[in-house]
Amino acid sequence: MSDNHDRFARLFSPVYPRLRRFAHGLTGSPADADDLVQNAAERGMNKFAQYQEGTRFDSWMFRITRNLWIDTTRARGRRDARELPEAAGLAVGHDPRPATEARLDLGRAMEMMARLPAEQREVVALILLEGMGYREVAELLDLPIGTVSSRLVRGRKALLEMLGEATND
C-alpha cells in the first residue's frame, strides 16, 4: 500500500508542473485548476493498479486529468459559460501598442482559453501549451489525427483574434 503510494509519488511529482499548467489552460480559474490537479492526483492514486508498466505515465495522468475536467464541465452544464467573465475577473486595459507587442498575462490568457469551446481548448492546451505532437494528442483523446488538426486550426485562429481584440476596441 505504502510502497505503491511512494512509487506513484515518484512518478507523479515530475509530471505535476506540466499537469498544473494544463489544468490552468482548461479551467479558466486558478482555484479550479488546482482542485482539478488535486482530484486527478487522487484518482490516479486510486486507479494506480490499472496503470500499465512500460506505458507513458505522463500520458496516463494527462488523460485522467482531461477526463475529470470533462466530467466536471458536464456536471456544471450551462453554468460554466455564464461564469467565465466572472472567473477571469481582471479588467482588460487599453494598450496602445500593437497586439503582438503587448505582453499577455496569465489572467487574460486563461480568459482567452476559457472562451474556446471545450473540444478546441483541450487540443490547444495539449499542443500549443504542452508542446505535444498531433499523434500523441490524437491517442490521448481517442480522436482521428485529422480531427485534432482541424480543431487546433479553429482554436488558434480564435485565440489570435482575441489577442488582437483588446487593442482594437
Partner: peptide
Amino acid sequence: QLRGAFAPTLA
C-alpha cells in the same frame, strides 16, 4: 505569448 503567460503555473 501563451507559453509565456502560462509559465508561472509551472510550480
